[in-house]
């Protein structure tokens, strides 16, 4: 695995000057991912969404590698086409050497509108890495709910109103859906644990087939917290078991971080304005339900790890 020192010497794939909010978790994650990939030429695809919008406003681009943006729901299909072109052109001798193919999409572009495109691309076995930068809502269009938005969260389409306190549905377990495709590699990560993320990107790119990393990426205005808190919140998501760091390869689950004494999920929730209403008197049941769900998911993951040993 590349050391921090080695990483620091590599050419950045995503450079500064773009228009993401100060403290944007997703742009930090993409920067780390491209650094991890930078030992080989890399070609990327990206869905419409915050990251595409803040980094590519013509005539500027923050990308030092080739990037293709097509539409909101199809960066998996688009990148699979690039990978197919690469194979064909390599056979004809028009292109030489190895290329990393990385497709990016937000949770909206991945869990929701682009799920079919991703499922298809993984099933077809393209050698590419798909990264979902999961900021748990449609941030680009003003914080609307997605199927990655957690239970209870306030978004502009699941508002905490007088009668209904935020999103009433649980989030979808996308990583598990992808694992059931039997990909070459799948993992969950978050930029607060950056060496973990780097290692996972290296593994994913080395795997012989389609790979997937779901990266929980805190969003300053969407989640509602001061911009310097991004990495803390990212870590808190892991320490409260809200976002377990684990990987899956050849049928084996490995949990990468097992907090000795997991913190109650409140510690994660209370840092963010989107959960402010769940701490109002009379809403205690929301936090309890949240905690029960998180604990159940964690227990299930432990059992999966145990069973796959």
């Amino acid at each position: 695995m590349a050391t921090l020192k080695e990483l620091a010497k590599r050419t950045e794939g995503l450079v500064g000057g773009h228009r993401a909010c100060a403290g944007c978790g997703a742009s930090a994650a993409i920067r780390q991912i491209l650094l991890a990939a930078a030992d080989k030429p890399t070609v990327c695809g990206i869905c419409t969404g915050c990251m595409e919008v803040v980094t590519t406003i013509f005539p500027f681009t923050a990308w030092n590698v080739n990037l293709v943006h097509n539409a909101f729901e199809n960066s998996a299909a688009t990148t699979s086409g690039m990978e197919a072109a690469y194979k064909a052109l390599k056979r004809k001798g028009k292109i030489k050497g190895d290329i990393n193919f990385i497709a990016f999409g937000g949770d909206g572009g991945t869990y929701d509108i682009g799920l079919q495109s991703l499922s298809g691309a993984i099933e077809r076995g393209h050698k590419m890495l798909y990264v979902c930068y999961d900021n748990e809502a449609y941030m680009n269009t003003g914080y609307q709910r997605s199927s990655a938005t957690p239970y209870g969260a306030h978004t502009t389409t699941s508002p905490s109103g007088k009668k209904i306190p935020g999103k009433q549905q649980k989030r979808k377990d996308l990583t598990e859906i992808i694992i059931s495709h039997d990909p070459a590699y799948a993992a969950q990560a978050t930029p607060g644990y950056y060496m973990d993320l780097i290692k996972k990107v290296e593994k994913a790119l080395a795997a012989d087939g389609p790979s997937f990393i779901n990266v929980l990426s805190p969003c300053v205005p969407g989640w509602g917290y001061p911009s310097e808190q991004t990495m803390n919140i990212s870590k808190m998501a892991v320490e409260t078991l809200f976002w377990p760091l684990y990987e899956w390869q050849d049928g084996v689950y490995t949990i990468n971080v097992k907090p000795r004494e997991p913190k109650p999920v409140e510690e994660f929730l209370k840092l963010q304005a989107r959960f402010r209403h769940v701490f109002k008197p009379g809403n205690e049941h929301l936090v309890e339900a949240f905690q029960a769900h998180i604990s159940r998911q964690w227990e299930r993951l432990l059992r999966k790890e145990e069973a796959s040993k």
């Binding site: 070609v43 097509n70 539409a71 299909a77 086409g81 690039m82 990978e83 064909a88 495109s117």
Partner: peptide, 10 residues
Amino acid sequence: SACCGASAAG
């Protein structure tokens, strides 16, 4: 979409 990716790739 895949055609676009492939065509953009050359």
